[in-house]
Protein backbone atom coordinates (compact mmCIF):
# COMPACT_ATOMS: atom_id res chain seq x y z
CA UNK A 1 0.00 0.00 0.00
CA UNK A 2 2.98 2.27 0.37
CA UNK A 3 3.62 2.34 -3.36
CA UNK A 4 2.34 5.59 -4.81
CA UNK A 5 -0.21 5.47 -7.51
CA UNK A 6 1.07 8.70 -8.98
CA UNK A 7 4.59 8.60 -10.32
CA UNK A 8 5.00 4.93 -9.62
CA UNK A 9 1.98 3.98 -11.69
CA UNK A 10 3.82 1.29 -13.68
CA UNK A 11 4.33 -0.56 -10.42
CA UNK A 12 0.54 -0.82 -10.10
CA UNK A 13 0.73 -3.65 -12.58
CA UNK A 14 0.25 -5.99 -9.70
CA UNK A 15 -1.66 -3.36 -7.71
CA UNK A 16 -4.41 -5.60 -6.56
CA UNK A 17 -3.70 -4.52 -2.99
CA UNK A 18 -6.28 -1.79 -3.23
CA UNK A 19 -8.91 -4.22 -4.35
CA UNK A 20 -8.21 -6.84 -1.74
CA UNK A 21 -10.45 -5.58 1.11
CA UNK A 22 -13.52 -5.35 -1.12
CA UNK A 23 -12.69 -8.64 -2.75
CA UNK A 24 -12.35 -10.45 0.58
CA UNK A 25 -15.63 -8.97 1.81
CA UNK A 26 -17.52 -10.06 -1.28
CA UNK A 27 -15.98 -13.53 -1.33
CA UNK A 28 -16.73 -14.16 2.34
CA UNK A 29 -20.17 -12.60 2.56
CA UNK A 30 -21.50 -12.83 -0.96
CA UNK A 31 -20.01 -15.72 -2.90
CA UNK A 32 -19.65 -18.14 0.00
CA UNK A 33 -23.15 -17.74 1.50
CA UNK A 34 -24.84 -17.85 -1.90
CA UNK A 35 -22.84 -20.92 -2.86
CA UNK A 36 -23.72 -22.59 0.45
CA UNK A 37 -27.41 -21.82 -0.11
CA UNK A 38 -27.34 -23.23 -3.60
CA UNK A 39 -25.50 -26.33 -2.47
CA UNK A 40 -28.27 -27.03 0.01
CA UNK A 41 -30.68 -27.36 -2.91
CA UNK A 42 -28.98 -30.58 -3.94
CA UNK A 43 -28.07 -31.88 -0.47
CA UNK A 44 -31.20 -31.37 1.60
CA UNK A 45 -33.07 -33.33 2.65
CA UNK A 46 -30.81 -35.78 0.79
CA UNK A 47 -28.29 -35.72 -2.05
CA UNK A 48 -30.02 -35.41 -5.42
CA UNK A 49 -32.16 -33.30 -7.68
CA UNK A 50 -35.44 -34.03 -5.90
CA UNK A 51 -36.00 -30.35 -5.04
CA UNK A 52 -35.78 -29.31 -8.67
CA UNK A 53 -38.04 -32.18 -9.66
CA UNK A 54 -40.60 -31.04 -7.13
CA UNK A 55 -40.42 -27.42 -8.27
CA UNK A 56 -40.90 -28.29 -11.90
CA UNK A 57 -43.54 -30.96 -11.42
CA UNK A 58 -45.93 -29.32 -8.99
CA UNK A 59 -48.78 -27.15 -10.22
CA UNK A 60 -48.47 -24.85 -7.20
CA UNK A 61 -44.93 -23.91 -8.10
CA UNK A 62 -45.72 -23.70 -11.79
CA UNK A 63 -48.32 -21.10 -10.89
CA UNK A 64 -45.77 -19.17 -8.85
CA UNK A 65 -43.36 -19.11 -11.79
CA UNK A 66 -46.20 -18.11 -14.10
CA UNK A 67 -47.29 -15.27 -11.76
CA UNK A 68 -43.74 -14.03 -11.42
CA UNK A 69 -43.07 -13.86 -15.14
CA UNK A 70 -46.56 -12.51 -15.86
CA UNK A 71 -46.23 -9.65 -13.37
CA UNK A 72 -42.65 -8.86 -14.41
CA UNK A 73 -43.72 -8.81 -18.06
CA UNK A 74 -46.77 -6.66 -17.41
CA UNK A 75 -44.82 -4.24 -15.25
CA UNK A 76 -42.13 -3.94 -17.93
CA UNK A 77 -44.70 -3.32 -20.66
CA UNK A 78 -46.72 -0.75 -18.72
CA UNK A 79 -43.70 1.16 -17.43
CA UNK A 80 -42.26 1.29 -20.96
CA UNK A 81 -45.54 2.71 -22.31
CA UNK A 82 -45.67 5.35 -19.57
CA UNK A 83 -41.97 6.11 -19.42
CA UNK A 84 -41.39 6.83 -23.10
CA UNK A 85 -43.62 9.92 -23.29
CA UNK A 86 -42.39 11.09 -19.90
CA UNK A 87 -38.71 10.75 -20.86
CA UNK A 88 -39.41 12.45 -24.18
CA UNK A 89 -41.20 15.33 -22.45
CA UNK A 90 -38.34 15.67 -19.96
CA UNK A 91 -35.98 16.30 -22.87
CA UNK A 92 -38.04 18.86 -24.73
CA UNK A 93 -40.26 20.63 -22.21
CA UNK A 94 -39.42 24.17 -21.09
CA UNK A 95 -36.78 24.09 -18.38
CA UNK A 96 -39.02 24.87 -15.45
CA UNK A 97 -41.68 22.28 -16.29
CA UNK A 98 -39.08 19.64 -17.07
CA UNK A 99 -37.30 20.39 -13.81
CA UNK A 100 -40.52 19.99 -11.89
CA UNK A 101 -41.37 16.70 -13.58
CA UNK A 102 -37.84 15.46 -12.97
CA UNK A 103 -38.08 16.38 -9.29
CA UNK A 104 -41.35 14.44 -9.03
CA UNK A 105 -39.80 11.36 -10.65
CA UNK A 106 -36.78 11.53 -8.35
CA UNK A 107 -38.90 12.16 -5.26
CA UNK A 108 -41.03 9.11 -5.98
CA UNK A 109 -37.88 7.07 -6.51
CA UNK A 110 -36.11 8.20 -3.37
CA UNK A 111 -39.06 8.06 -1.02
CA UNK A 112 -38.87 5.17 1.41
CA UNK A 113 -40.05 1.99 -0.25
CA UNK A 114 -42.28 0.96 2.64
CA UNK A 115 -43.84 4.41 2.84
CA UNK A 116 -44.82 4.17 -0.81
CA UNK A 117 -46.09 0.64 -0.49
CA UNK A 118 -48.08 1.55 2.61
CA UNK A 119 -49.73 4.38 0.68
CA UNK A 120 -50.80 2.00 -2.05
CA UNK A 121 -52.13 -0.51 0.48
CA UNK A 122 -54.39 2.19 1.88
CA UNK A 123 -55.28 3.70 -1.50
CA UNK A 124 -56.22 0.38 -3.07
CA UNK A 125 -58.17 -1.24 -0.24
CA UNK A 126 -61.90 -1.96 -0.50
CA UNK A 127 -62.85 1.31 1.20
CA UNK A 128 -59.84 3.15 -0.22
CA UNK A 129 -59.74 6.35 -2.20
CA UNK A 130 -59.55 4.67 -5.60
CA UNK A 131 -62.54 2.43 -5.07
CA UNK A 132 -64.65 5.21 -3.55
CA UNK A 133 -63.80 7.55 -6.42
CA UNK A 134 -64.70 4.90 -8.97
CA UNK A 135 -68.02 4.29 -7.22
CA UNK A 136 -68.75 7.98 -6.90
CA UNK A 137 -68.44 8.42 -10.64
CA UNK A 138 -70.63 5.36 -11.15
CA UNK A 139 -67.87 3.47 -12.90
CA UNK A 140 -68.53 0.51 -10.65
CA UNK A 141 -71.29 -0.37 -8.24
CA UNK A 142 -69.19 -2.54 -5.96
CA UNK A 143 -65.61 -2.10 -4.79
CA UNK A 144 -63.17 -3.78 -7.16
CA UNK A 145 -60.62 -5.99 -5.39
CA UNK A 146 -57.47 -4.03 -6.16
CA UNK A 147 -55.23 -5.32 -3.42
CA UNK A 148 -54.14 -8.75 -2.15
CA UNK A 149 -54.03 -9.88 -5.77
CA UNK A 150 -51.85 -9.47 -8.84
CA UNK A 151 -53.59 -6.22 -9.80
CA UNK A 152 -52.34 -4.59 -6.63
CA UNK A 153 -48.85 -6.02 -7.09
CA UNK A 154 -48.73 -4.76 -10.68
CA UNK A 155 -49.87 -1.25 -9.76
CA UNK A 156 -47.41 -1.03 -6.86
CA UNK A 157 -44.54 -2.41 -8.94
CA UNK A 158 -45.24 -0.09 -11.88
CA UNK A 159 -45.01 2.77 -9.41
CA UNK A 160 -41.66 1.60 -8.09
CA UNK A 161 -40.13 0.66 -11.44
CA UNK A 162 -41.23 3.69 -13.47
CA UNK A 163 -38.14 5.82 -12.68
CA UNK A 164 -35.83 2.94 -13.64
CA UNK A 165 -37.45 2.98 -17.06
CA UNK A 166 -37.64 6.77 -17.43
CA UNK A 167 -33.96 7.45 -16.70
CA UNK A 168 -32.32 5.25 -19.37
CA UNK A 169 -34.81 6.33 -22.04
CA UNK A 170 -34.26 9.95 -21.06
CA UNK A 171 -30.51 9.45 -21.33
CA UNK A 172 -30.83 8.16 -24.87
CA UNK A 173 -33.36 10.69 -26.19
CA UNK A 174 -31.36 13.56 -24.73
CA UNK A 175 -28.44 12.63 -26.93
CA UNK A 176 -30.47 12.68 -30.15
CA UNK A 177 -29.71 15.78 -32.21
CA UNK A 178 -32.98 17.72 -32.74
CA UNK A 179 -31.71 18.54 -36.23
CA UNK A 180 -32.25 14.87 -37.16
CA UNK A 181 -35.95 15.29 -36.46
CA UNK A 182 -35.95 18.57 -38.37
CA UNK A 183 -34.39 16.73 -41.27
CA UNK A 184 -37.14 14.11 -41.05
CA UNK A 185 -39.79 16.84 -41.20
CA UNK A 186 -38.18 18.51 -44.21
CA UNK A 187 -37.96 15.11 -45.90
CA UNK A 188 -41.74 15.12 -45.71
CA UNK A 189 -42.38 12.95 -42.66
CA UNK A 190 -45.54 13.77 -40.70
CA UNK A 191 -45.20 13.84 -36.92
CA UNK A 192 -46.52 10.29 -36.68
CA UNK A 193 -44.09 9.08 -39.34
CA UNK A 194 -41.20 10.88 -37.66
CA UNK A 195 -42.16 9.25 -34.36
CA UNK A 196 -42.47 5.74 -35.77
CA UNK A 197 -39.61 5.83 -38.24
CA UNK A 198 -37.05 8.01 -36.47
CA UNK A 199 -37.61 8.91 -32.81
CA UNK A 200 -38.78 5.49 -31.57
CA UNK A 201 -36.11 3.48 -33.38
CA UNK A 202 -33.46 5.87 -32.07
CA UNK A 203 -34.80 5.46 -28.52
CA UNK A 204 -34.71 1.64 -28.70
CA UNK A 205 -31.38 1.26 -26.86
CA UNK A 206 -32.78 3.18 -23.90
CA UNK A 207 -36.06 1.28 -23.94
CA UNK A 208 -34.25 -2.06 -24.15
CA UNK A 209 -31.89 -1.16 -21.33
CA UNK A 210 -34.73 0.05 -19.12
CA UNK A 211 -36.89 -2.95 -19.97
CA UNK A 212 -34.16 -5.45 -19.09
CA UNK A 213 -33.44 -3.69 -15.83
CA UNK A 214 -37.10 -3.44 -14.83
CA UNK A 215 -37.82 -7.03 -15.84
CA UNK A 216 -34.86 -8.39 -13.87
CA UNK A 217 -35.68 -6.31 -10.81
CA UNK A 218 -39.34 -7.29 -10.96
CA UNK A 219 -38.56 -11.01 -11.16
CA UNK A 220 -36.82 -11.00 -7.80
CA UNK A 221 -38.81 -8.31 -6.05
CA UNK A 222 -39.93 -9.17 -2.56
CA UNK A 223 -41.45 -6.28 -0.63
CA UNK A 224 -44.25 -5.11 -2.91
CA UNK A 225 -45.60 -8.56 -3.79
CA UNK A 226 -45.47 -9.52 -0.13
CA UNK A 227 -47.49 -6.50 0.98
CA UNK A 228 -49.83 -5.88 -1.96
CA UNK A 229 -50.22 -9.45 -3.17
CA UNK A 230 -52.41 -12.16 -1.78
CA UNK A 231 -51.33 -15.42 -0.23
CA UNK A 232 -52.93 -17.32 -3.10
CA UNK A 233 -50.94 -15.41 -5.71
CA UNK A 234 -47.44 -15.70 -4.45
CA UNK A 235 -44.38 -14.67 -6.44
CA UNK A 236 -40.97 -16.29 -6.53
CA UNK A 237 -39.04 -14.09 -4.09
CA UNK A 238 -41.79 -14.38 -1.52
CA UNK A 239 -41.91 -18.13 -1.98
CA UNK A 240 -38.16 -18.41 -1.35
CA UNK A 241 -38.46 -16.41 1.86
CA UNK A 242 -41.43 -18.46 2.98
CA UNK A 243 -39.75 -21.82 2.31
CA UNK A 244 -36.76 -20.77 4.37
CA UNK A 245 -38.35 -18.77 7.13
CA UNK A 246 -41.70 -20.41 7.84
CA UNK A 247 -41.29 -23.89 6.43
CA UNK A 248 -37.56 -24.26 7.13
CA UNK A 249 -37.30 -26.10 3.84
CA UNK A 250 -33.81 -25.00 2.82
CA UNK A 251 -33.55 -27.49 -0.01
CA UNK A 252 -36.58 -26.28 -1.89
CA UNK A 253 -35.84 -22.60 -1.08
CA UNK A 254 -32.30 -23.05 -2.35
CA UNK A 255 -33.52 -24.67 -5.56
CA UNK A 256 -35.95 -21.80 -6.21
CA UNK A 257 -33.18 -19.32 -5.43
CA UNK A 258 -30.92 -21.09 -7.88
CA UNK A 259 -33.49 -20.82 -10.67
CA UNK A 260 -34.05 -17.14 -9.92
CA UNK A 261 -30.31 -16.57 -9.83
CA UNK A 262 -29.72 -18.26 -13.18
CA UNK A 263 -32.50 -16.30 -14.88
CA UNK A 264 -31.35 -13.01 -13.36
CA UNK A 265 -27.68 -13.42 -14.15
CA UNK A 266 -28.39 -14.57 -17.70
CA UNK A 267 -30.48 -11.49 -18.33
CA UNK A 268 -27.75 -9.37 -16.72
CA UNK A 269 -25.17 -10.95 -19.00
CA UNK A 270 -27.44 -10.21 -21.94
CA UNK A 271 -27.70 -6.59 -20.85
CA UNK A 272 -23.92 -6.30 -20.47
CA UNK A 273 -23.50 -7.73 -23.94
CA UNK A 274 -26.13 -5.58 -25.59
CA UNK A 275 -25.93 -2.29 -23.76
CA UNK A 276 -23.05 -2.26 -21.33
CA UNK A 277 -22.82 -1.68 -17.65
CA UNK A 278 -25.85 -0.28 -15.81
CA UNK A 279 -25.41 3.24 -14.53
CA UNK A 280 -25.92 4.13 -10.88
CA UNK A 281 -29.66 4.62 -10.67
CA UNK A 282 -30.61 3.69 -7.15
Amino acid sequence: MSSTFALARPRMRKGTGMILPALVLLLAFFVVPVALLLSRSVTEPELGLQNYRELLASGTYAKIFFNTFLVAGLVTLITALLAFPVAWALVIMPRLLAGLLFAIVLLSMWTNLLARTYAWMVLLQQTGLINRTLMQFGLTSEPIPLVNNLTGVTIGMVYIMLPFMVLPIYGVIRKIDPAILQAAALCGATRLQALGRVLLPLAVPGIASGALMVFVMSLGYFVTPALLGGTSNMMLAEMIAQQVQSLVNWGLGGAAAFILLVVTLSLYALQLRLIGEPKGTA
Binding site: I180, Q182, A183, R191
Partner: peptide
Protein backbone atom coordinates in the same frame (compact mmCIF):
# COMPACT_ATOMS: atom_id res chain seq x y z
CA UNK B 1 -42.31 22.00 -42.71
CA UNK B 2 -43.09 18.50 -43.83
CA UNK B 3 -45.35 19.72 -46.61
CA UNK B 4 -43.08 22.47 -47.92
CA UNK B 5 -41.25 19.98 -50.09
CA UNK B 6 -37.98 21.80 -49.45
CA UNK B 7 -34.64 20.00 -49.40
CA UNK B 8 -32.04 20.80 -46.80
CA UNK B 9 -28.49 19.84 -45.87
CA UNK B 10 -27.61 20.78 -42.31
CA UNK B 11 -24.42 21.96 -40.70
CA UNK B 12 -24.42 18.97 -38.37
CA UNK B 13 -24.64 15.41 -39.60
CA UNK B 14 -28.32 14.55 -39.69
CA UNK B 15 -28.40 11.19 -41.41
CA UNK B 16 -30.72 8.81 -39.56
CA UNK B 17 -28.16 6.75 -37.67
Amino acid sequence: SHKRNIGMVFQRYTLFP
